[in-house]
Simulated assay, not measured.
Amino acid sequence: MTRTAQPAPIPRQAHVRRPRIAVGTDGTVWGDAALDWALRHAATQSASVDVFAAETSDDHAITRRLTAYRWLFTTVTVSPDSSVRTLLEASTDHDTLVLGYRGRRHGPFGLGRSVLPVVTESRCDTVVVRGEPRAVQGEHRWITAALGGKHDDAVVRRAVQFAVRTRSKLRLVHAVPLPGAHTVPISTEPADVLEHAHDLVREMAPDLTPSLRLVRSQPHEAVRSSERSDLLVLGPGSLPGKLSVITSTALHMAPCPVLVVKPF
């Protein structure tokens, strides 16, 4: 009796979820910079990009930028609604939200009026594109993570992911307040904060050796440590609905784009 060989079953391919990036643009210099930044970083992880354009945006400029990344899956939505409402709605089903630090409407300190409300209420990570040209273009090849908050693990994980994807070096910074009458007592030894972060980096990316920096200054002054960086990664703060001093300072003054992690 002859037996007929049965065909081997074809293994089912596991569904891999494509990361999703939402970006707001309004046709200003920083709106264009936000779109460029989002597209460049989407290319490092094959993410899809959903563009939310204001009615003031230049359709031809958007098309030109998307054509340069034609292999990415992209959509464009022109919305007459409030930019804050549009971007917050987008944050509910995206992994990262990107916007420029100022647009056509901005306050006396130069920060766009929609930035703080969006960063505070966003339901996903938010990147605010700002800083000097080399940092915005990602030419320094350094990622800086600001530590010392309750969301340090999430901050380190995001910083490692960006460093690996962009083949950049990683800097871990922890600011320790100078002694003074109004200094808040330190609950964790500074060395322990950096050591824990270092161990987490080694666990995630054994080939990545971070630079550790202990800054003797007020925490919000640690923003200066992000000079010659392409991205500053930090947490939102410990109080729900309110950004920390260092995060608010970074959004106003950082010399590079700022990623505010949304803890889950």
Rank of each mutant, 00 (worst) to 15 (best):
V76Q: 11
A43W: 07
A53R: 06
S217P: 07
C124R: 02
D199F: 00
D59S: 13
T144Q: 05
V176P: 02
L66N: 08
E195G: 04
V258W: 09
I10R: 14
S46M: 09
E55M: 09
T74E: 06
R18Q: 15
V233Y: 03
G180K: 05
W142E: 11
V49H: 08
T86G: 07
D32P: 00
V119P: 11
L172S: 08
V173K: 04
S211V: 12
V29N: 06
A181F: 13
L87Q: 02
G180T: 08
R224K: 08
A250P: 02
H182Y: 15
D26A: 05
V260G: 07
T74Y: 01
R18M: 14
T92G: 01
R141I: 00
S122Y: 04
M1W: 10
H220K: 12
R102D: 12
H140Y: 15
A145D: 04
H60A: 15
R104Y: 10
G237S: 05
V223D: 06
Y69E: 13
L231V: 05
V51K: 09
A54C: 11
V98N: 05
R17F: 09
V173H: 03
L251N: 12
V129T: 12
T44C: 09
V84S: 06
H220I: 00
R228S: 13
P219F: 11
L88K: 07
W142N: 10
A205M: 10
Q6K: 12
A22P: 07
P80K: 01
H94S: 12
R167D: 15
A146Q: 03
D58G: 10
D59T: 12
G149E: 11
P185G: 05
I186L: 15
R102S: 14
P179Q: 05
R213Q: 14
V223S: 07
A197L: 04
A154V: 00
V136R: 01
H252G: 10
L259D: 03
T44L: 15
E55V: 09
L243D: 11
E189Y: 00
V261R: 05
R224D: 15
